[in-house]
Design a protein around this nucleic acid. Structure first.
Lengths: 201, 201
DNA sequence: ATTTATTGTCTCACTTTGTGACAATATTAA
DNA sequence: TTAATATTGTCACAAAGTGAGACAATAAAT
């Protein structure tokens, strides 16, 4: 997200209310930004260094948004519990919050400069996601209800940032017995039609 | 730890000061309880449900320890960032904090009943440790500087709670090239003396 | 000198993984 | 109608990894 009238970019985030579950706060924040419910979310790290906080930046942001009078607490040091979500790009309607002028997708290799330690947060998210990819589920939420093996392979290749061997990938995924195979679609392309799969079980 | 004049058992923990790094706070707490510095520590989850907090219990504990007047904040809901450490049992001098009457080791299969969600915290710690055992390091801090392959295998078997095949274990560990082999010790036992290893590299 | 327990290593079978090959097939081109 | 093209599902084979037992080596006790 980009804050109003600044050059500050940041990951979307929020605060946990005194009487609110941490996970609930995260889901509410996600819903506000994306409109999505029931999304796969994983907490991966809690960032708690004092040095990660820069009150000057926070002050600048708040001043553009009407001053800091009522919200003195926002100028104090805070600790951030970070989550990543797996979201289907196309399902999302991105909505900035009150103090931001935009909320957008950015390619990993084309990120704007981010405030605080948000770049590091992204690195850690990606590392955790890659490490979990083998054990945990797969393209849930990232794919439509029905998808081809190639679609799924592309998800894996995007996350791992490497090419996978087609035959081995198919063999491995099918051996997990997590996918249900459906009727073929006639895709309209000039080749054999692929099976469709879903995550049902 | 067991709190003074109660039947409440809890994991050791502490609070993060306003101007203190999260990781520093954890290391200080660990040092206070164990006397140990420079220990392998891994953050594994942040517990933030409102329901995990039971003010009645906290009140009881504080009343036995001189009332709650000055420490009203301790009766409010809090969020816990959980870490596990790998520690050599023998290096430790356990020291309870001011409000506890004991700080002790308990076998996993002989735990006292714990307050709040501390049982769940242990489960999650163990699950994370087991999952990381393959990828991450191994018995650092859990073993003396020099140890035998059998010592190391026992650490793995304790953590995983299963027997491992001796030959396969040795082959796998050695193939990691993380151990330095030293001179044999003459152990005094009635059999071939084992090599000694260290984690140096 | 013999026995006993444990170690270091090897071999064999079995499983998993990487790689290319093949036929099948939906569409386009000839 | 036939041939060409691209991609799919599957298999075969080699390479690598894993589980299990076997065997000689050896430190101490008998």
């Amino acid at each position: 997200m980009k804050y109003h009238n600044t050059d500050f970019y940041a990951l979307p985030g929020g605060f946990v209310r005194l009487n609110e579950d941490l996970n609930t706060a995260v889901r509410i924040g996600l819903k506000e930004r994306t409109g999505l419910d029931n999304i796969f979310l994983e907490q991966f790290y809690t960032f708690g260094n004092v040095s990660r906080f820069k009150p000057e930046i926070m002050k600048q942001i708040m001043e553009v948004n009407g001053g800091v009078n009522e919200n003195v607490w926002i100028l104090e040091r805070f600790i951030s519990v970070a989550y990543y979500a797996l979201i289907n790009y196309d399902d999302v309607e991105l909505t900035p919050d009150a103090i931001s002028e935009s909320c957008d997708w950015y390619d990993l290799d084309n990120l704007p400069e981010l405030i605080f330690d948000h770049k590091e947060i992204i690195s850690k998210a990606l590392a955790t996601l890659r490490a979990n990819l083998e054990t945990k589920l797969m393209g849930v939420n990232l794919l439509p209800p029905m998808f081809t093996m190639k679609d799924l392979q592309k998800v894996y290749e995007a996350i791992l940032d490497e090419k996978l061997h087609r035959g081995a990938f198919q063999r491995k995924i099918l051996s997990m017995n997590l996918l249900k195979r459906h009727e073929k679609q006639f895709s309209g392309a000039a080749h054999k039609a692929p099976f469709l799969y879903s995550f049902e079980r």
